[in-house]
């Protein structure tokens, strides 16, 4: 592993990101309507004013021209301004980053701590009732839509039991840590469920594969106990295939859990994305999606680097 390898990998991402930006820009503009539609039915905004705004934002130009204008300012470090709020795109995004990092950080951390032992236990007790039960749980977790589970949680814990606030980041006039945590628990749990379900499956299949290897028998023959074999020999090898999935999931969720944040009115990146979609806020959408794409590219590089650390057979030149 060398620095030049890292630079080459990240450099290779530049044409990829350029291509992604073209496709994203095209798709956004394929959708009917535009950012100024919200003024059309507002009697206090005259058609002339709308026309003036259209020219000011450059929306009267052909789409390719708009793209190059966007690209030019982006390369100069200017992310543009939100059409809806008029604020700079970058500061809009940064404002939402904190809540999203809190939510996804907690959900991912929790998911990792739970999914790992679940997958390992399933694999080591393969075919047992426990394994069957965990498998059913996983499939339920993967196939349950997040919004539906979120509504069920709200119904149980907020409406019926009244234990937790149903939505929002904090109570009005309160902002204490306890209050914020009470708001955080439910969305984080809902978000982590689906992740636990899928990660535990990947870890299970990786472990099942590894546990059948001769070197696991070798470890038993050396006199290792089951826990030693599982933790020191099997897990290290079983994590290799799971790393890719975990890394990419990480990037996806950090760049915004759209549904969870929307249902729980969580003021994060995901909800910003939803709002920007509704308002056809092109600069915000492009900014968010480019950030997300870069996150996934970066996650893949990190996954590859992690492979090399986990598996001595892998060398990058």
């Amino acid at each position: 592993m060398s620095l030049s390898y890292l630079l080459r990998r990240l450099g290779g991402a530049i044409p990829l990101l350029l291509g992604i930006s073209v496709i994203l820009f095209a798709i956004i503009h394929l959708a009917p309507g535009g950012p100024l539609d919200m003024y059309l039915e507002n009697p206090s905004v005259s058609p002339e004013a709308i026309e003036q705004m259209r020219t000011a934002y450059g929306l009267d130009q052909p789409v390719p021209v708009q793209y190059f204008l966007w690209l030019k300012s982006m390369l100069a470090g200017d992310w543009g301004y939100s059409i809806r709020t008029g604020k700079p795109v970058l500061s809009e995004i940064l404002n939402r980053l904190g809540p999203t990092l809190q939510l996804s950080g907690l959900a991912l951390g929790f998911a990792f701590i739970v999914a790992m032992p679940l997958g390992v236990i399933s694999a080591t007790r393969r075919g047992s009732k426990l394994d069957t039960g965990l498998t059913l749980f996983s499939f339920a977790g993967i196939s349950t839509p997040v919004f539906w589970m979120a509504l069920l949680f709200q119904l149980l814990f907020s409406v019926q039991l009244g234990w937790l606030p149903s939505a929002g980041y904090q109570s009005v006039g309160d902002g204490s840590l306890v209050d914020r945590l009470r708001h955080l628990v439910m969305p984080a749990t809902v978000l982590s469920f689906a992740i636990i379900a899928s990660w535990s499956r990947y870890i299970r299949s990786g472990m099942v594969d590894v546990l059948n290897q001769d070197y696991i028998r070798t470890a038993y023959a050396k006199g290792r106990t089951e826990i030693g074999v599982v933790v020191l020999h099997a897990l290290r090898n079983a994590m290799i295939p799971a790393v890719t999935v975990i890394a990419v999931d990480f990037a996806t969720i950090i760049s915004g859990a759209v549904i969870t944040e929307t249902v729980f009115a969580w003021p994060g990146i995901g909800r910003l994305f939803m709002e920007a979609m509704d308002g056809r806020d092109y600069p915000i959408l492009m900014g968010l999606m480019m950030l997300g794409s870069f996150g996934i590219v970066l996650a893949n590089v990190i996954a590859d680097v992690t492979y090399a650390a986990l598996d001595p057979r892998i060398r990058y030149g």
Binding site: Q213, D214, Y215, T218, A221, H233, R236, N237, D311, P312
Partner: peptide, 14 residues
């Protein structure tokens, strides 16, 4: 002790 058939599988690659 035991010596296994497949020397490619019986040594932990890590």
């Amino acid at each position: 002790q035991i010596i296994f058939q497949d020397p490619f599988a019986s040594l932990n690659p890590r």
